[in-house]
């Protein structure tokens, strides 16, 4: 029986050897077919879009009602761009929508650190969109103009901010944990902490103290590559990852649909 099978496998390998060209050809055909299908699918999607009610939310009020109609709202949203060129205006637009919907924490992330470098541009674009969206008198009440840079929180004038935005890049992700490991080691060495106290809960508390950002609830990932690209590993434990092919010219309807699909997910926390 075993010999039979060995024989069969040898035959199989021989057959494979002779048909290398054919197999490569078939593989390419499959790839082409899949690409064509995807292209058609996206084409249909795009063509249908103008027919949908494609509106720019023109008042804060619309957004507030939309927020109420969602079953749950994430506390912390990550906007992750896995694309080569980034349109800062669209990023700023989405940030504004998030904040106006009442989401408290927002992380903007791209691996190469382009957003971090050009955060001033994002800030500027943000102001432009804000003027467009919010009414004159609301403009001053809205305390969403602050953008944090990097991981450390800057305490400004001792005022507890309601909503925070931060911009991260690839270098912030794992290094945060390395520096925490260093600090923990030194406190163990100084005997101010026991070795057995290094537990997920205590580490989690320490990290939250440092960054003052809770774990990510939802990541909106823009780009065709299915990859988290090194977004802070500790904070994506129970994060829902929702993808969209591109962030460019994203309209409010699409954005709202993404939030809706988050609202409809169910988490069991291991149970």
């Amino acid at each position: 029986m075993a010999e039979d099978r060995e024989f069969a496998s040898i035959c199989f390998i021989n057959k494979m050897g002779s048909g290398v060209f054919i197999r490569h050809f078939l593989l390419n055909i499959i790839h082409v077919l899949i690409s064509v299908c995807l292209f058609i699918y996206r084409g249909i999607h795009k063509a249908r879009r103008p027919l949908c009610t494609n509106y720019y939310p023109h008042s804060e009020y619309t957004l507030k009602t939309d927020a109420k109609s969602l079953r749950k709202l994430p506390l912390h949203v990550g906007i992750v761009v896995v694309e080569d060129d980034i349109n800062y205006s669209d990023i700023a637009k989405m940030t504004l929508w998030c904040l106006a919907l009442g989401i408290s924490y927002i992380t903007i992330y791209d691996h190469a650190g382009l957003c971090k470098r050009d955060r001033d541009i994002i800030q500027r674009e943000f102001e432009v969109h804000k003027k467009r969206l919010l009414s004159e008198k609301k403009l001053d009440n809205c305390n969403i103009q602050h953008i944090e840079y990097g991981l450390e929180r800057h305490q400004t004038q001792g005022i507890k901010k309601q909503q925070c935005v931060r911009v991260l890049s690839g270098c912030d992700s794992r290094h945060q944990l390395v520096s925490l490991a260093r600090d923990l080691s030194s406190s163990v060495l100084r005997q101010s902490m026991k070795l057995s106290n290094i537990e997920p809960i205590s580490v989690d508390n320490l990290l939250q103290e440092r960054t003052s950002f809770p774990d990510l609830d939802l990541v909106l990932r823009f780009g065709v590559t299915e990859c988290v690209m090194g977004l802070s590993p500790w904070q994506i434990r129970l994060t829902e990852f929702l993808s969209h092919p591109s962030h460019k010219n994203i309209d409010y309807t699409t954005f709202y649909h993404l939030l809706q699909s988050y609202a409809n997910t169910e988490q069991r926390f291991g149970k």
Partner: peptide
């Protein structure tokens, strides 16, 4: 769980520092 794994690694290095095998 991944967090447990990372904590275990942190404990490991902290112990190494405590024993004087490595520096911070």
């Amino acid at each position: 769980t991944s967090q447990d794994e990372i904590c275990a690694a942190m404990r490991e290095v902290a112990e190494g520092v405590q024993l004087g095998l490595i520096k911070e």
